[in-house]
Design a protein around this nucleic acid. Sequence first.
DNA 1: TTGTAAGCGTTATCAT
DNA 2: ATGATAACGCTTACAA
Lengths: 323, 323
Amino acid sequence: MTKTKKLTINDIATKANVSTATVSRYLNGQLNQMSATTASKLKKIIKETAYIRNSAAVQLAKQKSNLVAVVASNIDEYFSSEYFKGVVSILSAQGYIGVLFDSNSDEITESNLLESVYNQNFAGLILQPLSTQHHLIDKFTNNHIPVVLIDRDIGNGDISTVTTNNFQVTKFAMESFLGKGFKKVTIITEPVNRISTRVERIAGVRSVFNHAQLIEVDTDHLNLSELSDDLDIKNPTHLLFVLKERLLIQLLANTDLLHEPKTQQRLTGFIDTNIPKYLAPTYKFIQQSPYLMGATAAELLMTQFSEQQPTDIKQIVIPSHFE
Amino acid sequence: MTKTKKLTINDIATKANVSTATVSRYLNGQLNQMSATTASKLKKIIKETAYIRNSAAVQLAKQKSNLVAVVASNIDEYFSSEYFKGVVSILSAQGYIGVLFDSNSDEITESNLLESVYNQNFAGLILQPLSTQHHLIDKFTNNHIPVVLIDRDIGNGDISTVTTNNFQVTKFAMESFLGKGFKKVTIITEPVNRISTRVERIAGVRSVFNHAQLIEVDTDHLNLSELSDDLDIKNPTHLLFVLKERLLIQLLANTDLLHEPKTQQRLTGFIDTNIPKYLAPTYKFIQQSPYLMGATAAELLMTQFSEQQPTDIKQIVIPSHFE
DNA sequence: TTGTAAGCGTTATCAT
DNA sequence: ATGATAACGCTTACAA
């Protein structure tokens, strides 16, 4: 309950009988620029007084912020929180702080959020884009704020991107089902819009089953009975391919669908958690590596911090697995 | 592609032929302290130049940060991301930024995180505590950094807290099952330790079924067959009460358990998402209101910001519902 | 190895 | 209604 008045670097300097410059050097790890005795004296005093720097002052003097904005398209998805953890793991090791924002699957919200993020002096931006509008991002890049896109591409070669092999892994899975005798595929997804991940996955399906039909639904208002005609459950050579885990779980929960044929998997898709595995332990699904994707995006961002020239743009693909 | 050199308040002042003081007043909304013409001139110039304040300088001058740390016990839980959204909804309306940290269900991590958060000059802390150690928090309160606990209590009356009615709602649910003829209850949970939510829920069960047995398991390594003796499925008057959604889903996925009796619900617990509802549409579960809890915690924090005296400590309970 | 002092961009007090 | 200017706490040449 010691009443603590805010300590400054000056107080420390006085106590140690050195100048503020020396204290500052110590705080910034320039130990080679001072005697061992000075260093240990400072170490002791700083520990005793529990002094901490005023980070606003540090940032003002150093002319750089240590805040990185991470704008997720929808935090409710486990995918988002998982790649956020990957981002943070890299950032915090370098003294940066990751700040999570949620576009909530809404382009208007995303636009407002980016505007507000821009106004808050962040050092960098990691964005899982909803809109394909380049100009939302231009503001950042024009002002030399590094940007990395994650999960989705917006067809702008000027920006570093971390995605997964949506097309390839889907194609691979489809070939496996083709080999098992499946003749027909129905893709179930939220509205495709121009979301690159969805477009690529659909292309992956159609590269094998070129007449695969597409059903767009709304996760929150899914009505299974309405769909039942399209689902065509009785046909044992008909595969359902679901692009979103929540949707997949709802279908898996329909035990008729899950257990009638018993012998053959007739339902698969992209998953984020192991909940689908609880429901169907023998099934194979497509799993991404969101944590790794986040960590990679953060690393890409860090390299851009250390560069003078805003070059070195990279497009990295983190593979997903069908298993 | 305009090459933008960082604009300062000085540049704006020069362009407008006024002093920096006037610009600063404008930026801070003191419009009554200047002529309408000056104000509109500034408005125009600021818009044209897309000038934004350097927030480090603002914070240094105003002597306050706009960052609030939100330390969740485990981001993987939907509960956490949901209350975080509630927190952010309130904070951002007041110009504060919520920063999410993850203790990852580990007390050591929590302790390190709090230390690091403390060193980063946050304006406030919203904590879902893992440890019941008061001293981790004392550092903050001693330095007049407001703290609000969420979800869990650590038995410290000096700190504002937002929790739910764990005991009451559990008791209510149990009475309902008692009325339906259940004779025996088994509680399935992760290790209780001293986590207040778990303790209270168990007490709620035992206030009705005083001999309810307790099974502590590890979510990640749940082995259903090992448990089967304890689960005692064949007994139609035996209720399973599960404290954690992920665990509940695993049990619900066991279709024998779910569908054998068909007529009567034999499994319930606390849920965070509507996935259990997909799996068992007719079942009743206990649902919390994490978003509201987060928003409430943030409001509590804000009141502490505006106070001089660190009094006005409140313990708020947001009820959960069995339905 | 250490010190001096001029910034960093904004706010807020005191004048006018 | 507006301006001049001293803080705010730290970093970093430049000196010594």
